[in-house]
Simulated assay, not measured.
Amino acid sequence: MLLVLSSGTAFSKQTMPYDAWRLGFFAPDYMEVWVETADVVDVNNLVFRRSGSGTVGLRYPRAFNNGVPQVFKGNPKGWPERPGWGAGKYVRGSDLPKKIYVRWQSMVEPKTYEAYIEIPESTREMMRNSVEVFCRADGKVITDYREAIVIGLAPGGIAKTWVTGPCLKPIEVSRTQATVDPRGPYEGKSNGHYRPLTDISKAYVEKFGIPYESW
């Protein structure tokens, strides 16, 4: 992907009815992921580097849980009916996205993947349009927007994308097959060393394996 401009040069008028949209990531239970970088190209061909990085949203293992449980309560098979917002942040200064590049470590395999996720105009149109919806958070009918893109990252290099809003049901918009980055983790700068997998996830995979065909 040609990274021709940085976020510091974004001066064009935004076409969305809010100040910023959000980019989030999650992974199936126990299938731990580390996002090395997520770079965004918006509709004006401006590039926003490292619009995402670090840990992703996970139900299991839960933070601060120590030791391997006798019973694994999580189930990594398939995708949730209503995925949450994942771990992420708002992409400020950007217009709506046209393409998202993601490079991540799938720590349970371990492999490093990269994907170029195309965001079609139909998705951007959903992000622009307002929806009148009853919001349980405040018990009122509000005007809401699908202002967030959520990407699920699974072993085998699967990246599935939804668009969602605070009080709106997520809509699945794409499924992308990533490729293995032959350089390995950190673009080959870590001598092949991946981030450590937790004991809980390691124990789950050793007992049950990785349900590749479910994503």
Rank of each mutant, 00 (worst) to 15 (best):
106 S>A: 15
150 V>L: 07
97 P>N: 14
162 W>C: 03
189 K>A: 13
111 K>S: 12
80 P>T: 14
98 K>H: 13
81 E>Y: 11
39 D>E: 06
120 P>S: 09
108 V>G: 01
52 G>S: 07
53 S>R: 13
55 T>R: 08
62 R>L: 06
151 I>Y: 01
176 T>M: 09
135 C>A: 06
49 R>N: 04
46 L>G: 01
102 V>S: 00
100 I>C: 12
147 E>I: 05
182 P>K: 04
132 E>F: 07
182 P>A: 03
158 I>V: 11
52 G>H: 07
86 G>D: 07
35 V>Q: 08
192 G>C: 04
210 I>L: 07
51 S>V: 00
209 G>M: 10
177 Q>T: 12
81 E>V: 15
175 R>N: 06
113 Y>L: 03
35 V>S: 04
47 V>E: 01
72 F>M: 10
213 E>D: 14
50 R>D: 15
140 K>V: 06
79 W>S: 11
127 M>Q: 07
67 G>T: 06
180 V>L: 08
209 G>R: 15
206 E>K: 13
90 Y>C: 00
60 Y>R: 01
44 N>E: 15
175 R>F: 04
36 E>C: 12
122 S>N: 11
8 G>Y: 04
27 A>K: 15
105 Q>P: 07
11 F>I: 08
27 A>I: 08
113 Y>K: 14
130 S>E: 11
70 Q>I: 06
38 A>Q: 02
193 H>G: 01
45 N>K: 10
80 P>D: 05
42 D>A: 00
142 I>G: 03
85 W>E: 06
44 N>G: 08
188 G>R: 09
164 T>G: 02
52 G>T: 09
129 N>G: 07
167 C>K: 02
130 S>W: 12
56 V>D: 00
67 G>V: 08
29 D>W: 15
28 P>Y: 05
21 W>V: 00
146 R>Q: 14
155 P>I: 05
209 G>Y: 09
72 F>H: 13
180 V>W: 07
179 T>K: 15
4 V>R: 14
113 Y>F: 09
204 Y>S: 05
191 N>C: 04
152 G>V: 00
150 V>Y: 04
141 V>Y: 13
113 Y>N: 11
21 W>I: 01
137 A>K: 12
43 V>Y: 11
140 K>T: 10
181 D>Y: 11
135 C>E: 05
7 S>T: 02
148 A>N: 06
22 R>L: 05
3 L>E: 12
79 W>F: 14
24 G>S: 03
211 P>G: 12
25 F>A: 03
160 K>D: 11
152 G>T: 01
98 K>S: 10
185 P>W: 09
158 I>T: 06
128 R>S: 12
113 Y>M: 13
36 E>T: 05
176 T>E: 01
209 G>A: 15
79 W>A: 11
197 L>T: 09
174 S>F: 06
112 T>W: 00
29 D>N: 15
11 F>Q: 02
43 V>A: 08
124 R>P: 00
49 R>V: 11
94 S>W: 02
30 Y>E: 09
31 M>N: 10
95 D>G: 01
58 L>I: 15
19 D>V: 04
207 K>E: 08
19 D>H: 15
109 E>H: 13
29 D>C: 14
206 E>C: 13
201 S>I: 09
214 S>V: 14
108 V>P: 00
146 R>N: 00
75 N>P: 11
